[in-house]
């Protein structure tokens, strides 16, 4: 398509005639390999990104016929001084922290467990991946059914089958409100769904560890703990960090699961910042200017967190 011609002309223009033969072809290959991706990303992100950046400084409703009114930083100021939003950010923080931490631990442990081959290990590993393959909308819907104290399975499975004893979604136990129970319910589902993701990435990392490292350790009679700490972990770390990085980004943005299960309730207990964002951007409100400003604040937070990870990642590779 069009991109191909653009990209090949770019390639040609960048070729430096005085370079050595290998050097030159390397350069061409590099451009050939990278530019299709970059061009596609730029084509699809340029307009939405800058348009919403502009809107974030305006008062604008996508559904109103009136043009955007320039506000300056008013949207940002309103957001940063709104107690509701600070609460939403705190909730999101808890949500991301707990779900990503648990996914990492469980995913890592699972990967270590299925690493050694045993009869049927391929089948079981594939089965463990199934939760991740479901659509988040369906997952939200079904866990609402699972948690139902009336006809859901969850309470029975954990031995709280007696009627009215536990209502996760309502954050109630024995008809008394229990703080954060609904949030825990949502985190549990997220962990259930995405631990396999971490597992698969870690597993790929584990499989790529050269055997000679372990052989050398075996010759030195190193303990398994030493092997784990000094060989396994550092070798897996880059892929593990990528897994954690993507899970963090996704968890900060995700709203469909929570929307389907709790709608952000009860009260504001599970109102994640992404849920709040969806509410102001859609659901009849369509406050596009305000929502864009909020999205950019989320973007800045995500960038900051990603930078921390990436710095760590680079250090992990440097080591």
């Amino acid at each position: 398509m069009a991109t191909a011609t653009v990209e090949s002309s770019v390639t040609k223009s960048r070729v430096q005639p005085q370079s050595a033969q290998r050097q030159l072809s390397d350069r061409a290959i590099m451009n050939l390999f990278i530019w299709p991706t970059l061009l596609l990303l730029i084509a699809f992100n340029f307009f939405p990104l800058f348009y919403s950046l502009y809107l974030s400084f305006t008062n604008y409703r996508a559904t109103a016929t009136t043009a955007p009114v320039w506000l300056g930083i008013e949207n940002y100021a309103n957001i940063l001084t709104s107690p509701d939003l600070w609460q939403a950010f705190t909730t999101s923080g808890k949500y991301v922290l707990f779900s990503v931490a648990l996914q990492t631990i469980i995913g890592f442990a699972l990967a270590m467990l299925v690493r050694g081959k045993f009869r049927g290990s391929g089948l079981i590993t594939t089965l463990i991946l199934i939760p991740m393959m479901l659509s988040p909308v369906v997952v939200g819907l079904f866990w609402k059914l699972m948690y139902n104290p009336n006809f859901g399975y969850f309470n029975y499975l954990i031995g709280m089958g007696q009627e009215g004893s536990l209502d996760m979604i309502a954050s109630r136990m024995f008809n008394q409100p229990v703080p954060n129970l609904a949030l825990a319910a949502v985190i549990l589902v997220d962990v259930w769904m995405w631990s396999p993701f971490v597992m698969l990435l870690v597993l790929s990392g584990l499989n790529a560890i050269p055997d000679y490292l372990y052989e050398a350790a075996a010759i030195d009679r190193a303990s398994s703990w030493f092997q784990f700490w000094h060989i396994t972990l550092p070798q897996v770390k880059p892929l593990l960090l990528i897994a954690v990085l993507f899970r963090t980004i996704e968890a900060l943005k995700s709203f469909d699961l929570v929307m389907g299960m709790t709608g952000g309730g009860p009260g504001n207990q599970t109102e994640l910042v992404a849920v709040y964002l969806y509410r102001v951007a859609f659901l009849g409100q369509f406050r596009s200017g305000y929502a864009s400003a909020l999205a950019y604040i989320i973007l800045i937070i995500v960038i900051a967190i990603s930078n921390l990870y990436i710095r760590n990642l680079n250090r992990a590779k440097g080591a």
């Binding site: 990303l41 939405p48 992404a274 969806y278 951007a281 929502a291 973007l299 960038i303 990603s306």
Partner: peptide
């Protein structure tokens, strides 16, 4: 494999396309 100038920035740009909540880009898209 290649040592291209500004590699980290480009990589970060690629990553950042996934950071903006989709809710906001839906209408411009």
């Amino acid at each position: 494999r290649f040592n291209l100038p500004g590699k980290d920035d480009l990589l970060f740009f690629i990553l950042s396309t996934r950071m903006l909540p989709a809710v906001v880009v839906t209408i411009p898209l």
